[in-house]
């Protein structure tokens, strides 16, 4: 008796693994909107040093330039007014005791700055601090005023300083802090003019496929 041929059971259906198509790699946020390279602008930086915001106005960013101008000049001169106009100066330090740093005896401007380090910050407000430099260059202790700017930003005498600190409130001291902050903030403004803001926007009308 012939036996029926044994039927080979069909192989169970094995699901064929399907390889998903590789997903496109996600672009980092910085590449998502590729901006044109930063164009450095040293002329605008110099203008913003001379007068806060002038570099931004030169670049066509009028509103920001005006904000920097009124904000920083407002803060600087408000601070000067708090100190009755006697808190921005660079002293002539020739007659003052010697100063040594790392064994080196200081002279000239470094010595003057060691007696008035606040001026290192005030200097960056630009031309508004230049009268102090002129007063330093032409200082004559026998005169009560300088040749060009009179008593403006001239180093006060010891008696004047004593009077200010003894008779006034603390506004004289707080005033020079305001002037230093205004000068140091202008460093940020100079950098904004030089290289743009920290978070840039695409230029108007610019498309990512535009050639740079």
């Amino acid at each position: 008796m012939a036996s029926a041929p044994s039927a080979v059971p069909p192989a169970p259906a094995v699901p064929v693994p399907t390889v998903p198509p590789p997903a496109a790699p996600a672009k980092p946020a910085a590449e998502a909107v590729a901006l044109p390279p930063v164009k450095l602008d040293p002329i605008a930086a110099l203008l913003s040093y001379l007068i806060p915001g002038l570099g931004q106005v030169y670049q066509g960013r009028i509103g920001k330039g005006l904000l920097f101008f009124f904000g920083l000049y407002g803060l600087f001169f408000y601070g000067m007014a708090m100190g009755q106009g006697k808190n921005v100066w660079l002293p002539r330090a020739a007659d003052l005791p010697e100063v040594e740093v790392f064994g080196q005896r200081l002279g000239g401007v470094p010595k003057a700055l060691s007696y008035r380090p606040q001026f290192l910050g005030q200097f960056w407000i630009g031309t508004a601090a230049w009268p102090a430099v002129v007063q330093y260059a032409y200082f004559d202790k026998d005169q009560k005023a300088g040749p060009v700017f009179g008593a403006f930003e001239r180093a006060p005498s010891e008696e004047e300083l004593n009077d200010l600190q003894r008779d006034g409130d603390k506004r004289w001291d707080l005033g020079w802090v305001y002037t230093v902050i205004a000068g140091v903030l202008n460093l940020l403004v100079i950098y904004d003019a030089f290289a743009g803001p920290m978070f840039r926007e695409p230029p108007p009308g610019w498309r990512p496929d535009d050639p740079w």
Partner: peptide, 14 residues
């Protein structure tokens, strides 16, 4: 002044 100036150095849009 510090708030406005610092913020304006970080962005261009008002």
């Amino acid at each position: 002044v510090v708030s406005l100036v610092y913020a304006a150095t970080r962005h261009d849009r008002w």
